[in-house]
Each structure stands twice: as structure tokens, then as C-alpha cells.
Design a protein around this nucleic acid. Structure first.
Length: 803
DNA sequence: AGCACGCCGACT
DNA sequence: GTCGGCGTGCTC
């Protein structure tokens, strides 16, 4: 077994297969499947994953593995197999699937360095010598930036300079310097007397080690003794002390303490939901449970106790939460119950912190991981349970390659491990609820709120009426009155502005022109910070004009009610109200999300104003009013799921009110009060919504009645884009069954991004066993053109967003 | 993806 | 006659 099959880090169709390498004798037995290695590939070095070992290769001129990057496999056999599954499911390259399962810190960083060969320095072109100054190596990037490529290439040809390809980890293990003594106490005491009298600091350090023999961090030792680095160095040279580097974990929760919490007594409903889960955990059975519980019904406690059962049998659990709700509140509940056994994975952590949390899992130092989408790949080997909270959330679908849905991955992994999956939601995705109805998933309902708190009362305000009544502000009279009362009573309010759809776009009031991005067919967004206009799809940015570029009128201004504008209006109307605003602007800095929520929780504000990000996971006892400023902004998006999304969002945000002793009220402002998703969300009536929406889905042949696949084609040339999409559409039309519905080619809802036109073709189908291979052959057919970046073809086998 | 190789046009 | 443009094909 001295040959390794390796998937190299070159995401291209032609290299999307195993390459064989000889394992050098010194690494024999050490190199295992699942390890990352550095291998020569053509003229350069690349990272690769060992996927298998063998004795023979079809290929006879094998090259050798240069070196391993890991001492132990980073992907176990289950994850390697999952990688193959993911490759098929997401139609991505094998390398992309493997890399998606690891923290980004483990992606390779490549550097090309030029180094002067041996003693050839004085043979170099004087210009080259000058450019090198007194270094004997230089990064290729610097050579390009300095415009010296030609001269250096000549030197390379002459053999005066050699090219070195380096492959490095993106992130290193964090290390600290430790100091310890290598002498006995007696030896140190002897030493003390022989030291000269003016070596005061050395004496103090030795005295310290006479009193404490343990290893200590250099930093702490310096602090404790007042000695300096040079003193320590002297003592190291005198062979009194020894310095060493020790790996440590970056700890994002360093300054937090978590008080141990104990399981609560469950309500009858909770207990009834928990028992089949525990039974399944104990019997090592694969089941999918849909925990369908109204907001505030105590789903989290069921999760916690289910995990408890998993830990009791010595297994591990993955707890998935949507990115946005990974607030300290959520983390806290898990850390309080399971203490040091919990690792946390979410985008708020730095690359290094994520890497360290991952290593804790890999080294089996933790048993539970709480994290967003990618945590579904946590390298546990004895998985006992996977939980997906708020399973309807769209953030579980990765919208870039590999386009996987964490729900599918969770179920696939649970099958491999013979363990249950819990999908939890107050407003399940229609696909999930339909499966529960069919008995594919097991439905576990929680119909009542904890301690029998009533559901909040919801009032819908028709904003058209308000306008007719002469109220042109963004607050209806009702909402404003209720808001005033809360402030008088010292209770808290959550105001949600559903900004998606149209944010603060800029329009001329004279000629009606809307300012669009020159590269993308999308309106520019006004940013107050630097008084500029930005495109959210490309990097385009321009100054806010003072006159309309079309008609030169100065009646140009930004529209759309941004959170900033709402905040200004509140300050005008209720100057005494303290407002915390949460949106992309105020939460972009690391940890600011947490800080703002904490401040609100501590009662430092009366109003929490924000976008969707405040709809989930908030659980503060003092919130008695929730206001939705405009419920219907996302209702009219060109997406068949927009009703579902609206219903879910309104129901979720309403659930923020009255979760504790105080009763809650909700005011929903809308221009379409008659729409069923607005109306039914006010009764929190998921079941009726489900019936209504399923009827529409059936009529229009949408999921869950049909599966979907979407092909998006983009090219700089509009005609080429249309023609290619047309060809693909015809190709599929001729080969798919009669039951398949093929829509297209049509322009994407965002018809141009970064000067590339976008067309799409949507396939709705019930059963197409050939679909995957047809899609593969499409990709293959256009391989050359896509490789040259002229053409882009994106295939999503389960699109969540129609853009 | 890189990178080498190789085949054609415009320069010393 | 050579330099350098980019299309073509390969990487164990």
C-alpha cells in the first residue's frame, strides 16, 4: 500500500478525479486516507486530499508525495464518503465538497517565491540585483507589482534564480511561550548562593521557581517577577530554565462564565415529544422527527434533554441553528447545560477561532457542537443526534458551490450513523410538513406555550386607510399609541422593518428615474455613512449626486424606509425613547450583534429597531409589544416562496412578544391586509396557511408537489447568453420525460450582475432519474467555454431563492 | 486553475 | 530573424 489516490486542490472539470502518487518510504504507514498532503502537480505544488491507498496504479510514471500536512486524517471515512455523496447532490467538484467540510483555516495558501540559486548572486542582471536589494528571495507578487517579470523570467531560464512553490496552512495553531525549570529545588537553592549579588532579577526568578515548580506562561512569569525577557534568556542559557511553545485554543468566550443549569420539568406535551426521540436515540435508530411547536412552546428544552440522553450513552450531538440566531442567548443555554463539552461554530468567530473549535471536536474534547450550516460536518465519529432548529430558515441552504442544504446533509449523516434527526420549527418548511403528513417524518406537536402563556394578540393595520386618513408617517396611529404606552410603563418594544426587496434606493421625484448600478440591473442603495451609493452585487460605489443625472432636477432623494430613517422619525416623535438599531450597518463589526442585544436585554433601551435579524431567538421578558412596520415588502418578490417566507417571518416576530409573565401585543402594518399569509399569521394559524399554500403549490406545480432544478447561464454577451440558455432548454426538453415542465429561457430576476447577463431555465419534475447525468453532460459540453470564464453555468438541484 | 508549449503577426 | 501575443492541452 505505497500508492495514494489524491484529489488535488484544482477546481476544474479536467482535474476532478483522483491522481495517484507514490508514498515515500519515510511516510509509509503514516499517510492515511483523509489526510491533506502536498503533492507536485505539473510544475507546481498543490494541496490534496488522500482518498485511498493502493498497491498498484494504472499510471507508471508516478511522482512522490512531497509531505503530509496533517499527522492524523482530518476527514474520517464517513466524511470522505459523505464528500462523494455531496459531489453528486450538489453537482460540484470533489475538491469543493471535501473543502466544504473543513474550516476555512485549513484551505491551502499558495505562494510562489523566487530564490537566488546558491552563489549566483553576482551573476544577476544589475537591475534584478537592485530590485532584490539585499534579500536573496522575493515573492512573485512583488515581482509582478514591480513590473520586473521579464527580467526575473530570464534569470530563471539561466538558472540563476529558482522558483519555489509554497503550500501553507491559512492559519496556524496559536502558541504561547511557556517556561519551566529543569533543576531541582535543591539545585536552585545552591545556584542562588553562587549568583553574583547584582543579579537581582535572576535571583527573583529562581526564587519564584523554588516556590512554584510548575510550568508557567512566559507572560505571567514576567508579570509575577518583574523580570525582563533578557533575564529569562540568560537563565535559559545557564540551563536553569527551559522555554517551550505550547499550543493553546483561542477562546471566544474567555471572559464569560456560565452557571450550570439543570433540566427543567417538562410539560406533558414536551415529555410526549421527547420520549420517542429518546427511544430512537437509545435504540440507535434512524428517524426524522419534525418538532412542530408554536413560538415559546419550549422546543429548546426538548433539544437539551434529548442531547442529554445522547451524552448519557456516550455519543455526540450536533445542534444546528440559523446563523442569525446564534446570539449569546442561544450559546449560553447550551454552555450552561453542558459546560465544557460544547463547541460553538458560527461566522461571528474569526478564522482562527473556528479552526480551534473544530480541533476541539476533532480531538474529541467536546461532545456537542452548536453551530450554523457548516457545523453539520462536525467530525464526530459516534454521532447520536442531529438537531436543526428553525428548520425552515433559508440560511441552511448554501447559495454558492457546493450548493447543499444542511437538512439533506443532516439526514444523510444520520443515516450513516443510525441516529435520529430533529427538525424543529413553529413554521416548518412546506416540504417538511408535507413529509410529516405523509409519515416520512414523525410529527411531534407542541401546541401550547410554556406555563400556558397566551399567544400574543395580533392586530393588523391597513396602511392604505391610514394614508386616506391623512397619516403619512410610517407609524399607524394604533402602533404609535401602543408604543407611547410601553415607554410610559417602562416596557420594551421590538420594531421590525422588513427591508428586503427595496432598501433605500434613490429616485428623482421630477422625472421618476431610479439610479441603477452601471454593471448590474439592480438599484443602488444609499449609504449614509459616507453619503454614497453602493451596489450590493458588485463593488460599485459612487457619490450621491445632488442633481438628477437625467433631468438635472434637484428633487433627487432616497426612498424606501431604511432603519436609519425610522430611527430619525422615532427621535422626532418620541425624543425620550431610547432606541437600539440593528441592521447591517450597526452589526458589521465583530461582536456588535451580541453587544447590542445584551444592552437591550439589560434594559438600556426601550425600542429595538431592526431588520429580519431581530425576528429570531430573542427572548426577553420585558418585551410586550412587537411592531412590524410593513409586512408586505417581501410579498411581491418574484419567488414562489414569498408567501411562505412572509408568513414565517411575521409569525416568528410575533412570537417575540409576551413569552414570560407580561402579556404581549403585536401590531402588523400592511398595504395588503387581505393577503392570506398576513391574515393567517395574525392568528398564528400555520395549519390553515399550510392548506392554502399547498393548494396553490399543487395548482402551479411547485414544491413539495414537484422537485425543481435551475440552470443559470451568464455571459458578457446578451445574445450568447440567450442562445446558450435556449440550447440547454431544448436539450433538456428533448430528453426529459413528458411529466417534466421546463420553463425558459427567461431573464433572471436580477438580469445582469457585474456586466454579465443572466438567463435561466427552470425544470419542475416528479421523477427524472436521468436528470443528474443530463446536467453533467451539459457542464461537460460547455467545459472549454466555462473554463475560459467566458461562460458561466450554474446548476442548483434544489434552489431556495429564485434570483 | 496555472503553466508550458506552440503557432502566427510586428518589430530591432 | 526574434519577441511576444494568446489558443491548446496537460497535470499522477
Amino acid at each position: 500500500m505505497n500508492i495514494a489516490a489524491v484529489i488535488v486542490d484544482v477546481p476544474a472539470k479536467q482535474t476532478d478525479r483522483e491522481f495517484d502518487y507514490k508514498i515515500p518510504d519515510k511516510w509509509l504507514g503514516l499517510i492515511q486516507p483523509g489526510m491533506r498532503v502536498i503533492v507536485p502537480f505539473g510544475p507546481r505544488m498543490v494541496q490534496g486530499f488522500v482518498t485511498g491507498l493502493k498497491d498498484k496504479s494504472e499510471f507508471d510514471k508516478l511522482r512522490q508525495i512531497k509531505e503530509p500536512m496533517d499527522l492524523e486524517p482530518v476527514l474520517n471515512s464517513e466524511l470522505l464518503q459523505l464528500g462523494n455523496w455531496l459531489t453528486l447532490k450538489a453537482m460540484c467538484f470533489k475538491i469543493s465538497a471535501l473543502q466544504a467540510m473543513l474550516p476555512s483555516a485549513m484551505k491551502a495558501k499558495y505562494e510562489k517565491v523566487l530564490k537566488v540559486t546558491g552563489d549566483k548572486k553576482n551573476l544577476l542582471d544589475p537591475e534584478v540585483q537592485r530590485f532584490l536589494a539585499n534579500h536573496d528571495s522575493i515573492s512573485w507578487k512583488d515581482v509582478i507589482n514591480g513590473g520586473e517579470t521579464v527580467r526575473f523570467q530570464k534569470e530563471v531560464q539561466k538558472g540563476n534564480v529558482e522558483v519555489i512553490y509554497q503550500v501553507k496552512n491559512r492559519m496556524n495553531k496559536k502558541k504561547v511561550k511557556m517556561v519551566e525549570t529543569i533543576l531541582s529545588v535543591q539545585e536552585m537553592k545552591d545556584m542562588m548562593s553562587s549568583l553574583s549579588a547584582n543579579a537581582k532579577k535572576q535571583q527573583e526568578v529562581i526564587q519564584y521557581f523554588i516556590e512554584h515548580q510548575e510550568k508557567i506562561q512566559l507572560k505571567d512569569l514576567l508579570e509575577a517577577t518583574g523580570a525582563s525577557n533578557s533575564t529569562i534568556k540568560t537563565l535559559v542559557d545557564k540551563k536553569v530554565l527551559r522555554e517551550s511553545d505550547e499550543e493553546i485554543y483561542r477562546n471566544p468566550y474567555e471572559n464569560r462564565t456560565f452557571e450550570k443549569s439543570n433540566p427543567f420539568t417538562l410539560t406533558d406535551e414536551q415529555a410526549a415529544a421527547l420520549s420517542p426521540i429518546v427511544a430512537s436515540v437509545e435504540k440507535d435508530e434512524h428517524d426524522v422527527f419534525l418538532l412542530y411547536g408554536v413560538t415559546g412552546s419550549g422546543k429548546t428544552e426538548v433539544y437539551l434533554q434529548a442531547i442529554d440522553a445522547v451524552l448519557k450513552k456516550g455519543a455526540e450531538a450536533i445542534m444546528l441553528v440559523p446563523e442569525i440566531s446564534l446570539t449569546p442567548q442561544t450559546v449560553k443555554r447550551f454552555k450552561e447545560r453542558f459546560g465544557e463539552q460544547v463547541a460553538v461554530m458560527h461566522s461571528g468567530l474569526s478564522v482562527g477561532e473556528k479552526y480551534d473549535e473544530w480541533r476541539k471536536i476533532h480531538r474529541k474534547e467536546v461532545k456537542v457542537v452548536v453551530g450554523a450550516r457548516s457545523a453539520v460536518f462536525a467530525p464526530f465519529e459516534n454521532l447520536g443526534l442531529i438537531i436543526m432548529d428553525e428548520e425552515h430558515e433559508s440560511s441552511y441552504k448554501q447559495e454558492e458551490n457546493p450548493r447543499y442544504h444542511a437538512r439533506d446533509v443532516a439526514i444523510e449523516r444520520a443515516k450513516n450513523h443510525k441516529c435520529p434527526v430533529i427538525l424543529g420549527s413553529a413554521t416548518p418548511a412546506l416540504e417538511s410538513f408535507a413529509r410529516a403528513q405523509k409519515g416520512v417524518y414523525q410529527l411531534l406537536p407542541l401546541t401550547r406555550r410554556m406555563n400556558n402563556h397566551p399567544m400574543p394578540s395580533v392586530e393588523i393595520v391597513d396602511m392604505r386607510e391610514e394614508l386616506r386618513g391623512g397619516n403619512r408617517s410610517m407609524f399607524s396611529e394604533l402602533l404609535f399609541e401602543k408604543l407611547k404606552v410601553r415607554i410610559e410603563r417602562g416596557e420594551q418594544t421590538v420594531l421590525m422593518l422588513n427591508k428586503r426587496g427595496h432598501s433605500s434606493f434613490v429616485m428623482c421625484r421630477s422625472c421618476g428615474v431610479v439610479l441603477n448600478c452601471p454593471n448590474c440591473d439592480i438599484s443602488l442603495t444609499y449609504h449614509r455613512m459616507n453619503h454614497s451609493l453602493k451596489c450590493h452585487y458588485c463593488a460599485h460605489e459612487e457619490k450621491m449626486p445632488s442633481i438628477c443625472p437625467e433631468c438635472s432636477s434637484d428633487h433627487i432623494r432616497f426612498f424606501g424606509t431604511g432603519t436609519q430613517k425610522v430611527e430619525e422619525e422615532i427621535t422626532k416623535l418620541l425624543p425620550e425613547a431610547r432606541v437600539i438599531r440593528m441592521d447591517v450597518d450597526t452589526t458589521s463589526k465583530k461582536g456588535s450583534h451580541e453587544r447590542l442585544l445584551q444592552a437591550f436585554g439589560e434594559g438600556k433601551a426601550d425600542i429595538l429597531l431592526g431588520t429580519q435579524m431581530i425576528a429570531k431567538g430573542l427572548d426577553f421578558p420585558n418585551i410586550t409589544l412587537v411592531g412590524v412596520l410593513s409586512a408586505d415588502t417581501m410579498l411581491h418578490l418574484p419567488d414562489f416562496r414569498s408567501s411562505e417566507k412572509t408568513f414565517q417571518l411575521l409569525t416568528q416576530v410575533s412570537g417575540r412578544a409576551g413569552r414570560h409573565e407580561l402579556e404581549g401585543e403585536v401590531v402588523i402594518q400592511t398595504y395588503t391586509p387581505e393577503h392570506y399569509s398576513v391574515e393567517l399569521s395574525s392568528y398564528q394559524d400555520y395549519d390553515s396557511f399550510y392548506e392554502r399554500e399547498m393548494f396553490i403549490r399543487r395548482q402551479n406545480h411547485y414544491p413539495p408537489y414537484f422537485y425543481m432544478a435551475m440552470v443559470t447561464v451568464s455571459h458578457e454577451d446578451l445574445m450568447k447568453t440567450v442562445a446558450t440558455t435556449e440550447k440547454i432548454t431544448q436539450f433538456l426538453g428533448a430528453r426529459l420525460s413528458k411529466g417534466a415542465i421546463i420553463l425558459g429561457p427567461v431573464a433572471s430576476p436580477i438580469s445582469r450582475i457585474n456586466n454579465r447577463y443572466r438567463y435561466q431555465c427552470l425544470i419542475k419534475y416528479k421523477r427524472e432519474p436521468e436528470l443528474q447525468s443530463l446536467m453533467r453532460s451539459i457542464l461537460e459540453h460547455y467545459q472549454q467555454e466555462t473554463a475560459q470564464q467566458k461562460l458561466q453555468i450554474n446548476i442548483d438541484l434544489n434552489p431556495q431563492i429564485m434570483m
